[in-house]
Design a protein around this nucleic acid. Sequence first.
DNA 1: AATTATACATACAGGTCTGTATAGTTTCAA
DNA 2: TTGAAACTATACAGACCTGTATGTATAATT
Lengths: 189, 189
Amino acid sequence: MVNKSKKEQILRVASNLFNKQGIRATGVDQVVAESQVAKMTLYNHFPSKDKLVLAYLERQDEQWRGWFQSSVEQREDTPQKRLLAVYDVLGEWFAAPEFTGCAFIKTASEYLDHSHPYFEATQRYKIILKNYIRELVEQSDFKKPEALASALYLLVEGAITAYMLQSDTESADHAKNAAAILIQNFKDN
Amino acid sequence: MVNKSKKEQILRVASNLFNKQGIRATGVDQVVAESQVAKMTLYNHFPSKDKLVLAYLERQDEQWRGWFQSSVEQREDTPQKRLLAVYDVLGEWFAAPEFTGCAFIKTASEYLDHSHPYFEATQRYKIILKNYIRELVEQSDFKKPEALASALYLLVEGAITAYMLQSDTESADHAKNAAAILIQNFKDN
DNA sequence: AATTATACATACAGGTCTGTATAGTTTCAA
DNA sequence: TTGAAACTATACAGACCTGTATGTATAATT
């Protein structure tokens, strides 16, 4: 039986390094050194750096989305309130000292080729986020729910990108204010 | 007198490769090979890859912003119409076959360290874009111009990021529709 | 005609990268 | 207690990276 804690340890260290430095900038040797593990142990658990990266992306999606959605749902209890809470949770994320930007935006930036497995992974995971917002929209009565969902999604990605670029602590607030206006405008009554 | 056409040639080839592949993924040897130039010629004009990259970022800012602003200004002749034209021009950009995403978002993604010269360059150049939108807003009469400008800027970055990730040809349209609603809402009358 | 600037080709230094080979050690269950 | 699975340390292959060294060709300038 493989020692799962070693595999976890490697993946945890690798994820931190990928987040902080980027994927190309992080070598296997550094992962091995900081994991305090033999190189062959890494290659026993992950047959290549590629597989390690894919495991990182998958885990990142699970962890971030789990945290994000449960934070939203914990904050508010109706779909409409949750649509606004999305931006409060974004603000919480930005303010966290370990914030390193969105792993998927960064990974797509590093591997722009649309047929690259990393890029395909980022696409898969980002669609899930978009769908989450769309579902929240569809659970209320809005005119043109598709248009509203798209706009709210753009505000999410915009806030993430703007915060990464400028560390403007009000990014999330500005997005929330804009979202509130849009939501009001799409109300079906 | 230095043969400027060689320097131009190198910078042009390097810019294309940086845009398509990323900075870390593009080696000096590839730039030299595709420029059809001797390696020492590159190092005569650019003392290091770093300087070449900084020249690329500077030129990218000039070229893109020049194209973007003149496209906006050519399309419409009042500040308020231009605020919406911004998103039409974005759509034009996305639809271009040579579109490779925003060089600054990608560069910031590759070099997250805020004290890195590349990251600092992206910050400088992105602030100019934000200021351009703010100026357009301030040339009309809006309630809370700062809030409107921030929201419109977030929609710009959101559309760019969303298109990079999902190639959704309607990103720019969705952003424009949302912008129109926000502009209407901030009108001071 | 001599000097200077520019570009050329080739080779190489010294470092990084991913991945493998090898051999010895720990762990743990049958 | 024996034996297999897991982990260790070290070394290395082969490819890549940035940057330099060397010597030559060419063309404009002085």
